[in-house]
Design a binder for these strands. Sequence first.
DNA 1: CTAATTTGACCCGC
DNA 2: GCGGGTCAAATTAG
Length: 291
Amino acid sequence: MEMNSPHDKAVQAILYGHSCAMRLKMRLDHFNMAESGPVSSYDLAKSIVDCFSNAISILSVKPKSEDEQFSDLSSRDSSPPPPQGSPSKKRKIESTNSSANWRDDSPDPIYYDGYLWRKYGQKCIKKSAHQRSYYRCSYNIDHNCGARKHEQKIKDNPPVYRTTYFGQHTCKTNHNLDAIFTAVQGPLDDSKSAKMIRFGKDLDQEKEHHSNGFSLSVKHEEEESIREQTMDQYHEIASNNQDCQHVIKEDLSSPSDSYPPPSSSGSESAEFDSDLLFDNPDWDRFDQFYF
DNA sequence: CTAATTTGACCCGC
DNA sequence: GCGGGTCAAATTAG
């Protein structure tokens, strides 16, 4: 159970995304036999996109200094209310002011931090050009959970979104899914999730922020074994979560079979997929990868 | 229909 | 009174 650091999750997401990409590529290479498998090409493409989206979100924050490398983040994350899945510039707030206990600045809104949130308010803040959104734990009522968070864009160009966490999660429900798992299996909690990543809106900008400095280098002859190994890791992750057992069983037969239909993630996801896959004028730039 | 979000009203400390 | 946080009715999404 040591594959839980954000870095590890990102690596797994990339590996699985790569395996999906290779499967898709093989189909395209043998176009006449396309759609012969149990998983549609669209679903494969969507899996790829989701995996990379997750990995990008996890890896997208550049550490301020040398001592803030990815390997540190998992250990730092183990402190009190540990928002997970978005290793950005988290820091504990000094006891000097307010009751806030965590603050997280990141270049994009946190789409998944390990908890489910319900928005309960939004206010214009005097000094800021951007509104502040107020969220409380979705299990606020069911489990009397008092955790809250505020989210506000505090800076433009480059954008900085500040999320401030208040209170402790007292909810017992095991909804702390690994972001990576939801990426592969489909966002199980989409309907409850406070935020989804949205590349469709501003794809070029997102790409500019995230695509620099990342590359995949996996040897071809290793692809199959990597896919198997990667899926084993997913199974291991998944087996820790009772809520997902049904998905795991389906998944054992074929990795992507259980992926939910694209429509389940909303129109914006579909829009994103089509934009990225077919309408992106810069698509050729990705030739350097094995796509 | 149910559940989540939006948004103006309300509350409270300064 | 002002600003920020929360409530809750209305609206929207699934």
